[in-house]
Computed example of a mutant assay.
Amino acid sequence: MTEKLIDHRAEGPTSAPPLLLGPSVGTSSALWDKVAPELSVTRRVVRWELPGHGGSAAELIRAGATMADLAELVVRLADSLGIERFAYAGVSIGGAVGMELALRWPERVESLAVICSSAHFGGAGPWEERAARVRREGMGWLLEPTAGRWFAGEFREPGLLADLAATDPGAYAACCDALASFDVRGRLGEIRARTLAIAGREDPATPPAHLREIADAVPRAALVELPGAAHLAPAQCPEAVLGALRAHLGGGASLGMAVRRQVLGDAHVDRAQARQSAFTARFQDFISRYAWGEIWTDPTLTRRERSLVTLTALVAHGHLDELAMHVRAARGNGLSAEEIGAVLLQTAVYCGVPAANAAFAVAQRVLEEETG
Protein backbone atom coordinates (compact mmCIF):
# COMPACT_ATOMS: atom_id res chain seq x y z
CA MET A 1 0.00 0.00 0.00
CA THR A 2 1.41 3.42 -1.00
CA GLU A 3 2.21 5.71 1.93
CA LYS A 4 0.03 8.83 1.95
CA LEU A 5 2.03 12.04 1.83
CA ILE A 6 1.32 15.71 2.33
CA ASP A 7 0.56 17.52 -0.91
CA HIS A 8 3.27 19.59 -2.52
CA ARG A 9 4.13 21.71 -5.54
CA ALA A 10 7.57 21.48 -7.16
CA GLU A 11 9.20 24.14 -9.36
CA GLY A 12 12.63 24.64 -10.89
CA PRO A 13 15.19 22.19 -12.30
CA THR A 14 15.38 18.85 -10.51
CA SER A 15 19.19 19.05 -10.62
CA ALA A 16 19.25 22.35 -8.69
CA PRO A 17 19.86 22.51 -4.92
CA PRO A 18 16.54 21.79 -3.16
CA LEU A 19 14.65 24.39 -1.14
CA LEU A 20 11.57 23.42 0.90
CA LEU A 21 9.01 26.13 1.67
CA GLY A 22 6.58 25.79 4.57
CA PRO A 23 3.23 27.62 5.00
CA SER A 24 1.50 29.36 7.87
CA VAL A 25 -1.47 27.65 9.53
CA GLY A 26 -4.68 28.36 7.63
CA THR A 27 -2.89 29.11 4.37
CA SER A 28 -1.85 27.08 1.35
CA SER A 29 1.24 27.01 -0.85
CA ALA A 30 -0.26 30.08 -2.55
CA LEU A 31 1.36 32.05 0.28
CA TRP A 32 4.59 31.71 -1.75
CA ASP A 33 3.14 32.64 -5.17
CA LYS A 34 5.04 35.93 -5.39
CA VAL A 35 8.35 34.50 -4.17
CA ALA A 36 8.71 30.84 -5.21
CA PRO A 37 8.84 31.35 -9.01
CA GLU A 38 11.84 33.68 -8.65
CA LEU A 39 13.61 31.33 -6.25
CA SER A 40 13.02 28.42 -8.64
CA VAL A 41 15.37 30.02 -11.19
CA THR A 42 18.33 28.67 -9.22
CA ARG A 43 16.65 26.20 -6.82
CA ARG A 44 14.50 23.10 -6.89
CA VAL A 45 11.65 24.63 -4.91
CA VAL A 46 9.16 22.36 -3.12
CA ARG A 47 6.19 24.03 -1.42
CA TRP A 48 4.46 21.66 0.99
CA GLU A 49 0.92 21.83 2.38
CA LEU A 50 -0.21 21.30 5.96
CA PRO A 51 -2.67 18.43 6.51
CA GLY A 52 -6.21 19.54 5.76
CA HIS A 53 -4.88 22.58 3.91
CA GLY A 54 -4.68 22.92 0.13
CA GLY A 55 -4.58 19.41 -1.33
CA SER A 56 -3.25 17.59 1.75
CA ALA A 57 -5.47 14.98 3.38
CA ALA A 58 -6.87 15.96 6.77
CA GLU A 59 -6.35 12.46 8.20
CA LEU A 60 -2.58 12.97 8.12
CA ILE A 61 -2.91 14.82 11.42
CA ARG A 62 -4.95 14.13 14.56
CA ALA A 63 -5.90 15.89 17.78
CA GLY A 64 -2.94 16.28 20.09
CA ALA A 65 -0.45 16.54 17.24
CA THR A 66 3.02 17.95 17.88
CA MET A 67 5.49 19.91 15.78
CA ALA A 68 7.56 16.73 15.58
CA ASP A 69 4.62 15.01 13.84
CA LEU A 70 4.53 17.74 11.19
CA ALA A 71 8.31 17.67 10.77
CA GLU A 72 8.16 13.92 10.20
CA LEU A 73 5.60 14.45 7.42
CA VAL A 74 8.04 16.85 5.73
CA VAL A 75 10.90 14.36 6.01
CA ARG A 76 8.73 11.64 4.49
CA LEU A 77 7.90 13.96 1.59
CA ALA A 78 11.59 14.77 1.07
CA ASP A 79 12.42 11.05 1.11
CA SER A 80 9.76 10.35 -1.52
CA LEU A 81 11.31 13.02 -3.78
CA GLY A 82 14.83 11.69 -3.32
CA ILE A 83 15.91 14.81 -1.44
CA GLU A 84 18.49 14.07 1.22
CA ARG A 85 19.78 17.51 2.19
CA PHE A 86 17.89 20.77 1.66
CA ALA A 87 17.59 24.43 2.44
CA TYR A 88 14.39 25.29 4.28
CA ALA A 89 12.25 28.40 4.76
CA GLY A 90 8.91 28.55 6.56
CA VAL A 91 6.34 31.05 7.81
CA SER A 92 4.84 30.88 11.32
CA ILE A 93 4.07 27.20 11.97
CA GLY A 94 6.14 26.47 8.86
CA GLY A 95 9.11 28.18 10.53
CA ALA A 96 8.53 26.17 13.70
CA VAL A 97 8.59 22.99 11.62
CA GLY A 98 11.91 24.17 10.20
CA MET A 99 13.38 24.57 13.68
CA GLU A 100 12.11 21.11 14.59
CA LEU A 101 13.75 19.69 11.46
CA ALA A 102 17.05 21.42 12.26
CA LEU A 103 17.00 19.98 15.79
CA ARG A 104 15.88 16.43 14.96
CA TRP A 105 17.53 15.95 11.57
CA PRO A 106 20.50 18.38 11.62
CA GLU A 107 22.33 16.44 8.92
CA ARG A 108 19.52 17.15 6.46
CA VAL A 109 19.01 20.90 6.93
CA GLU A 110 21.62 22.85 4.99
CA SER A 111 20.24 26.28 5.92
CA LEU A 112 17.16 27.59 7.69
CA ALA A 113 15.00 30.70 7.27
CA VAL A 114 12.41 31.34 9.99
CA ILE A 115 9.85 33.92 8.85
CA CYS A 116 7.31 35.62 11.14
CA SER A 117 7.61 32.70 13.52
CA SER A 118 8.70 31.95 17.06
CA ALA A 119 10.46 29.47 19.33
CA HIS A 120 7.22 29.52 21.35
CA PHE A 121 3.76 30.82 20.52
CA GLY A 122 2.50 32.43 23.71
CA GLY A 123 1.60 29.40 25.77
CA ALA A 124 -0.97 26.65 25.43
CA GLY A 125 -4.10 28.42 26.68
CA PRO A 126 -5.08 30.60 23.70
CA TRP A 127 -4.33 27.83 21.21
CA GLU A 128 -6.35 25.29 23.17
CA GLU A 129 -9.27 27.72 23.26
CA ARG A 130 -9.02 28.39 19.53
CA ALA A 131 -8.81 24.67 18.73
CA ALA A 132 -11.88 23.93 20.85
CA ARG A 133 -13.95 26.67 19.20
CA VAL A 134 -12.91 25.63 15.69
CA ARG A 135 -13.95 22.05 16.47
CA ARG A 136 -17.34 23.36 17.66
CA GLU A 137 -18.08 26.13 15.17
CA GLY A 138 -15.89 25.58 12.10
CA MET A 139 -13.73 28.17 10.36
CA GLY A 140 -16.09 31.05 9.59
CA TRP A 141 -15.62 33.04 12.79
CA LEU A 142 -11.84 33.17 12.23
CA LEU A 143 -11.87 35.15 8.98
CA GLU A 144 -12.22 38.71 10.26
CA PRO A 145 -9.79 38.59 13.23
CA THR A 146 -7.25 36.60 11.22
CA ALA A 147 -7.17 39.15 8.39
CA GLY A 148 -6.08 41.78 10.93
CA ARG A 149 -3.21 39.59 12.13
CA TRP A 150 -2.10 38.42 8.70
CA PHE A 151 -1.94 41.78 6.92
CA ALA A 152 -0.90 45.33 7.79
CA GLY A 153 -2.94 48.41 6.85
CA GLU A 154 -5.56 48.02 4.13
CA PHE A 155 -3.70 45.24 2.31
CA ARG A 156 -5.67 42.00 1.85
CA GLU A 157 -5.05 38.84 -0.15
CA PRO A 158 -8.54 37.40 -0.81
CA GLY A 159 -7.16 34.09 -2.09
CA LEU A 160 -5.40 33.36 1.18
CA LEU A 161 -8.52 34.22 3.19
CA ALA A 162 -10.46 31.85 0.93
CA ASP A 163 -7.86 29.15 1.73
CA LEU A 164 -8.49 29.76 5.43
CA ALA A 165 -12.24 29.33 4.98
CA ALA A 166 -11.67 26.09 3.04
CA THR A 167 -9.32 24.54 5.62
CA ASP A 168 -10.52 21.38 7.35
CA PRO A 169 -11.52 22.43 10.92
CA GLY A 170 -10.21 19.25 12.55
CA ALA A 171 -6.83 19.55 10.85
CA TYR A 172 -6.62 23.26 11.69
CA ALA A 173 -7.40 22.50 15.34
CA ALA A 174 -4.72 19.77 15.39
CA CYS A 175 -2.20 22.32 14.08
CA CYS A 176 -3.27 24.58 16.95
CA ASP A 177 -2.47 21.68 19.29
CA ALA A 178 1.03 21.53 17.81
CA LEU A 179 1.49 25.28 18.30
CA ALA A 180 0.21 25.03 21.88
CA SER A 181 2.87 22.52 22.93
CA PHE A 182 5.78 23.96 20.93
CA ASP A 183 8.61 25.56 22.90
CA VAL A 184 12.24 25.17 21.85
CA ARG A 185 13.64 28.28 23.56
CA GLY A 186 15.95 26.12 25.63
CA ARG A 187 17.30 24.32 22.55
CA LEU A 188 17.93 27.15 20.09
CA GLY A 189 21.66 26.97 20.78
CA GLU A 190 21.67 23.40 19.39
CA ILE A 191 20.66 24.51 15.88
CA ARG A 192 23.71 24.25 13.62
CA ALA A 193 22.17 25.21 10.28
CA ARG A 194 23.01 28.68 9.00
CA THR A 195 19.88 30.57 10.06
CA LEU A 196 18.05 33.71 9.00
CA ALA A 197 15.19 35.14 11.07
CA ILE A 198 12.82 37.49 9.21
CA ALA A 199 10.42 39.63 11.24
CA GLY A 200 7.50 41.78 10.16
CA ARG A 201 7.56 45.00 12.12
CA GLU A 202 3.75 45.19 12.04
CA ASP A 203 3.27 41.53 13.01
CA PRO A 204 1.01 41.21 16.07
CA ALA A 205 1.15 37.40 16.12
CA THR A 206 4.94 36.95 16.28
CA PRO A 207 6.41 40.42 16.90
CA PRO A 208 10.04 41.20 16.04
CA ALA A 209 11.10 40.38 19.61
CA HIS A 210 10.26 36.72 18.94
CA LEU A 211 12.55 36.63 15.91
CA ARG A 212 15.23 38.55 17.76
CA GLU A 213 15.16 35.87 20.43
CA ILE A 214 15.87 33.23 17.78
CA ALA A 215 18.63 35.26 16.11
CA ASP A 216 20.33 35.94 19.45
CA ALA A 217 20.32 32.29 20.53
CA VAL A 218 21.08 30.36 17.33
CA PRO A 219 24.77 30.30 16.36
CA ARG A 220 25.52 31.92 12.98
CA ALA A 221 22.03 33.47 12.82
CA ALA A 222 21.08 36.80 11.29
CA LEU A 223 17.98 38.97 11.70
CA VAL A 224 16.11 41.02 9.10
CA GLU A 225 13.14 43.24 10.03
CA LEU A 226 10.70 44.22 7.28
CA PRO A 227 8.84 47.53 7.66
CA GLY A 228 5.21 47.40 6.60
CA ALA A 229 4.93 43.62 6.95
CA ALA A 230 2.53 41.82 9.26
CA HIS A 231 2.34 38.04 9.75
CA LEU A 232 2.24 36.87 6.12
CA ALA A 233 5.30 38.75 4.90
CA PRO A 234 5.79 36.71 1.68
CA ALA A 235 2.34 37.82 0.51
CA GLN A 236 2.48 41.45 1.60
CA CYS A 237 6.19 42.22 1.05
CA PRO A 238 7.37 39.62 -1.48
CA GLU A 239 10.26 41.68 -2.89
CA ALA A 240 11.76 42.21 0.54
CA VAL A 241 11.38 38.55 1.49
CA LEU A 242 12.83 37.48 -1.85
CA GLY A 243 15.85 39.75 -1.43
CA ALA A 244 16.52 38.50 2.09
CA LEU A 245 16.21 34.85 1.05
CA ARG A 246 18.43 35.30 -1.99
CA ALA A 247 21.16 36.82 0.15
CA HIS A 248 20.77 34.07 2.74
CA LEU A 249 20.71 31.22 0.22
CA GLY A 250 23.65 32.70 -1.65
CA GLY A 251 26.17 30.97 0.59
CA GLY A 252 27.25 28.84 -2.37
CA ALA A 253 27.64 31.91 -4.54
CA SER A 254 29.75 33.62 -1.88
CA LEU A 255 32.02 30.60 -1.53
CA GLY A 256 32.13 30.28 -5.30
CA MET A 257 33.18 33.89 -5.70
CA ALA A 258 36.05 33.35 -3.29
CA VAL A 259 37.24 30.26 -5.22
CA ARG A 260 36.76 32.04 -8.53
CA ARG A 261 39.07 34.82 -7.35
CA GLN A 262 41.64 32.33 -6.08
CA VAL A 263 41.78 30.46 -9.41
CA LEU A 264 41.29 33.23 -11.97
CA GLY A 265 42.71 36.19 -10.08
CA ASP A 266 41.13 39.37 -8.77
CA ALA A 267 41.80 41.37 -11.93
CA HIS A 268 39.83 39.02 -14.16
CA VAL A 269 36.91 38.70 -11.72
CA ASP A 270 36.80 42.46 -11.14
CA ARG A 271 36.55 43.03 -14.90
CA ALA A 272 33.72 40.49 -15.14
CA GLN A 273 31.89 42.13 -12.25
CA ALA A 274 32.32 45.58 -13.75
CA ARG A 275 30.68 44.40 -16.99
CA GLN A 276 27.74 42.84 -15.13
CA SER A 277 24.31 44.25 -15.89
CA ALA A 278 20.76 43.44 -14.88
CA PHE A 279 20.60 41.29 -18.02
CA THR A 280 23.68 39.20 -17.09
CA ALA A 281 23.30 39.18 -13.28
CA ARG A 282 21.58 35.79 -13.13
CA PHE A 283 24.23 34.24 -15.37
CA GLN A 284 27.01 35.59 -13.14
CA ASP A 285 25.19 34.17 -10.12
CA PHE A 286 24.88 30.82 -11.93
CA ILE A 287 28.61 30.74 -12.68
CA SER A 288 29.59 31.62 -9.11
CA ARG A 289 27.13 29.23 -7.51
CA TYR A 290 27.47 26.14 -9.70
CA ALA A 291 30.80 26.22 -11.53
CA TRP A 292 32.84 27.73 -8.72
CA GLY A 293 30.71 27.12 -5.62
CA GLU A 294 29.98 23.43 -6.27
CA ILE A 295 32.21 21.92 -8.97
CA TRP A 296 35.54 23.64 -8.28
CA THR A 297 35.06 23.15 -4.52
CA ASP A 298 34.42 19.40 -4.82
CA PRO A 299 37.43 17.75 -3.13
CA THR A 300 37.28 14.63 -5.34
CA LEU A 301 39.72 16.26 -7.78
CA THR A 302 42.48 18.70 -6.93
CA ARG A 303 42.50 22.13 -8.56
CA ARG A 304 45.56 21.01 -10.51
CA GLU A 305 43.62 18.05 -11.91
CA ARG A 306 40.66 20.27 -12.70
CA SER A 307 42.92 22.56 -14.70
CA LEU A 308 44.10 19.56 -16.77
CA VAL A 309 40.49 18.62 -17.54
CA THR A 310 39.43 22.20 -18.25
CA LEU A 311 42.28 22.90 -20.68
CA THR A 312 41.43 19.76 -22.65
CA ALA A 313 37.71 20.58 -22.81
CA LEU A 314 38.33 24.15 -23.95
CA VAL A 315 40.66 23.00 -26.76
CA ALA A 316 38.13 20.39 -27.86
CA HIS A 317 35.41 23.02 -28.24
CA GLY A 318 37.64 25.78 -29.62
CA HIS A 319 36.96 28.22 -26.79
CA LEU A 320 40.24 30.10 -27.21
CA ASP A 321 39.35 33.19 -25.16
CA GLU A 322 38.46 30.97 -22.20
CA LEU A 323 41.59 28.90 -22.90
CA ALA A 324 43.85 31.91 -22.36
CA MET A 325 42.17 32.61 -19.02
CA HIS A 326 42.57 28.97 -17.91
CA VAL A 327 46.20 28.73 -19.00
CA ARG A 328 46.81 31.52 -16.48
CA ALA A 329 44.68 29.67 -13.92
CA ALA A 330 46.59 26.43 -14.58
CA ARG A 331 49.85 28.15 -13.77
CA GLY A 332 48.32 29.38 -10.51
CA ASN A 333 47.11 25.85 -9.78
CA GLY A 334 50.65 24.48 -10.06
CA LEU A 335 51.01 23.30 -13.68
CA SER A 336 54.38 23.99 -15.29
CA ALA A 337 54.75 25.26 -18.86
CA GLU A 338 56.00 21.80 -19.84
CA GLU A 339 52.92 20.13 -18.36
CA ILE A 340 50.60 22.56 -20.17
CA GLY A 341 52.46 21.74 -23.39
CA ALA A 342 52.00 18.03 -22.74
CA VAL A 343 48.24 18.54 -22.26
CA LEU A 344 48.01 20.42 -25.57
CA LEU A 345 50.04 17.75 -27.33
CA GLN A 346 47.58 15.17 -26.04
CA THR A 347 44.73 17.20 -27.52
CA ALA A 348 46.41 17.02 -30.94
CA VAL A 349 45.77 13.28 -30.90
CA TYR A 350 42.16 13.35 -29.67
CA CYS A 351 40.86 16.79 -30.69
CA GLY A 352 42.78 17.30 -33.94
CA VAL A 353 45.96 19.05 -35.05
CA PRO A 354 44.25 22.34 -36.08
CA ALA A 355 42.63 22.66 -32.65
CA ALA A 356 45.93 21.96 -30.90
CA ASN A 357 47.80 24.35 -33.21
CA ALA A 358 45.46 27.22 -32.26
CA ALA A 359 45.72 26.24 -28.60
CA PHE A 360 49.52 26.23 -28.65
CA ALA A 361 49.48 29.76 -30.10
CA VAL A 362 47.21 30.99 -27.31
CA ALA A 363 49.20 29.24 -24.58
CA GLN A 364 52.52 30.47 -25.91
CA ARG A 365 51.26 34.06 -25.88
CA VAL A 366 50.05 33.73 -22.28
CA LEU A 367 53.27 32.10 -21.09
CA GLU A 368 55.39 34.74 -22.81
CA GLU A 369 53.36 37.48 -21.14
CA GLU A 370 53.97 35.76 -17.84
CA THR A 371 57.74 35.46 -18.26
CA GLY A 372 58.00 38.93 -19.80
Rank of each mutant, 00 (worst) to 15 (best):
V35E: 01
A180E: 03
A87F: 00
P219V: 10
N333R: 11
G138Y: 10
F155K: 10
K34C: 07
A217H: 06
E368L: 13
L264H: 09
P299G: 02
A58Q: 08
G138T: 05
L31M: 07
L264C: 10
V97Q: 06
R328A: 14
A166K: 14
A348C: 08
A63D: 14
I115R: 01
L19M: 06
F155L: 11
L308T: 08
M99F: 04
E11D: 14
W127Y: 08
M67T: 05
E213D: 14
A119S: 09
A152Q: 07
R135P: 03
E107V: 04
A358Q: 15
R62Y: 11
M325Y: 14
V315S: 01
L112Y: 01
A124S: 15
G12C: 01
G228E: 05
A215K: 02
A229N: 04
D69F: 10
T195G: 01
L19D: 00
R282D: 06
A278N: 07
R76T: 11
A162W: 08
G82E: 11
R246M: 01
S277P: 15
Q236H: 15
T300D: 07
L5V: 12
A359T: 06
E137K: 12
L301H: 12
L112V: 03
E190W: 04
V366H: 02
R306T: 03
A193W: 00
F155P: 03
T2F: 11
E59G: 12
F182I: 11
F182C: 07
L344Y: 06
A173H: 06
E11A: 11
I93Y: 02
T206F: 04
V134A: 13
R187W: 05
G22I: 02
T146W: 05
V75Q: 12
E3A: 14
V75I: 15
V91N: 03
P354H: 09
F360P: 06
L308P: 03
E129Q: 09
G54T: 07
V224R: 01
G82L: 04
V45F: 00
T312W: 03
T280C: 08
T310H: 04
A119D: 02
L142Y: 02
V327M: 09
R149F: 15
V97N: 03
R271P: 06
E154W: 13
V75Y: 04
C176L: 09
I191T: 04
Q273A: 14
A247Y: 00
E100F: 07
P208L: 10
L31E: 01
A96M: 14
E368Y: 11
A78Y: 04
E154A: 10
G26D: 05
L232N: 02
L142H: 05
V349M: 13
R220V: 02
A58I: 12
Q364D: 15
I115N: 01
V74A: 13
A324N: 11
R261M: 03
G12I: 00
